Simulated scan of single mutants.
Amino acid sequence: MVLSLNTAEMDNGAVAAARSVADELGLAVDRTVVVQDSNKLTLRLLPCDVLARVAPATDQVAQFEIDLAARLTDSPVAALESPHVHERDGFVVTLWTYYESRGPVAPADYAEALAQLHAGMREVDIPTPHFTDRVEAAQRLLADRDRTPELPEDDRRLLVDTLRHEIGGADEQVLHGEPHPGNLLNTAHGPLFIDLETCCRGPIEFDLAHAPKDVADHYPDVDHDRLQACRRLVLAMITTWRWDRDDQLPDGRRLAEQWLCELRS
Score class of each variant (00 low, 15 high):
176 H>Q: 09
196 L>C: 03
176 H>K: 10
85 V>P: 00
165 H>A: 11
208 L>H: 07
64 F>Q: 06
255 L>D: 13
79 A>K: 01
6 N>D: 14
74 D>R: 15
25 L>I: 02
188 A>R: 09
170 A>D: 13
207 D>C: 12
187 T>V: 09
41 L>Q: 08
5 L>H: 06
73 T>P: 00
244 D>A: 10
122 R>V: 01
68 L>S: 13
44 R>H: 09
13 G>L: 02
78 A>C: 02
202 G>R: 13
119 A>Q: 11
172 E>K: 02
185 L>M: 13
247 D>A: 14
176 H>G: 04
262 E>K: 14
150 E>A: 11
197 E>V: 11
41 L>W: 05
203 P>W: 06
214 D>P: 08
192 L>V: 14
261 C>N: 09
56 P>Q: 09
38 S>E: 08
25 L>E: 00
7 T>S: 15
22 A>R: 10
179 P>C: 00
172 E>P: 06
138 A>R: 08
25 L>M: 00
232 R>L: 13
154 D>E: 00
87 E>Q: 15
155 D>G: 00
122 R>S: 01
6 N>V: 12
89 D>E: 14
2 V>L: 09
102 R>E: 06
100 E>A: 14
204 I>W: 10
112 E>F: 01
9 E>G: 08
67 D>C: 06
158 L>E: 03
246 D>N: 05
47 P>I: 04
170 A>M: 03
83 P>A: 05
83 P>E: 05
33 V>A: 05
71 R>A: 15
111 A>L: 03
15 V>I: 15
243 W>V: 12
133 D>S: 02
46 L>M: 14
207 D>R: 05
85 V>I: 01
87 E>D: 12
63 Q>Y: 05
242 R>A: 07
10 M>D: 08
182 G>Y: 07
125 D>A: 07
246 D>W: 12
174 V>M: 12
121 M>A: 04
180 H>R: 03
212 P>I: 07
207 D>F: 10
60 Q>N: 03
148 T>K: 04
35 V>I: 12
135 V>Y: 01
241 W>F: 13
30 D>P: 14
47 P>C: 11
69 A>T: 07
159 L>E: 04
54 V>Y: 00
128 T>N: 00
100 E>W: 06
143 A>Y: 02
246 D>A: 15
68 L>F: 10
138 A>E: 05
83 P>M: 04
32 T>C: 00
3 L>H: 10
183 N>G: 02
140 R>S: 05
236 A>H: 02
241 W>D: 12
169 G>W: 03
180 H>W: 06
125 D>E: 10
126 I>T: 01
90 G>V: 13
225 D>W: 08
21 V>I: 13
50 V>M: 13
101 S>M: 13
62 A>C: 07
224 H>F: 15
26 G>Y: 07
265 S>I: 03
192 L>N: 09
151 L>V: 13
173 Q>C: 04
5 L>D: 13
98 Y>L: 07
65 E>C: 08
111 A>W: 01
238 I>A: 04
203 P>E: 07
86 H>T: 11
205 E>R: 02
154 D>K: 00
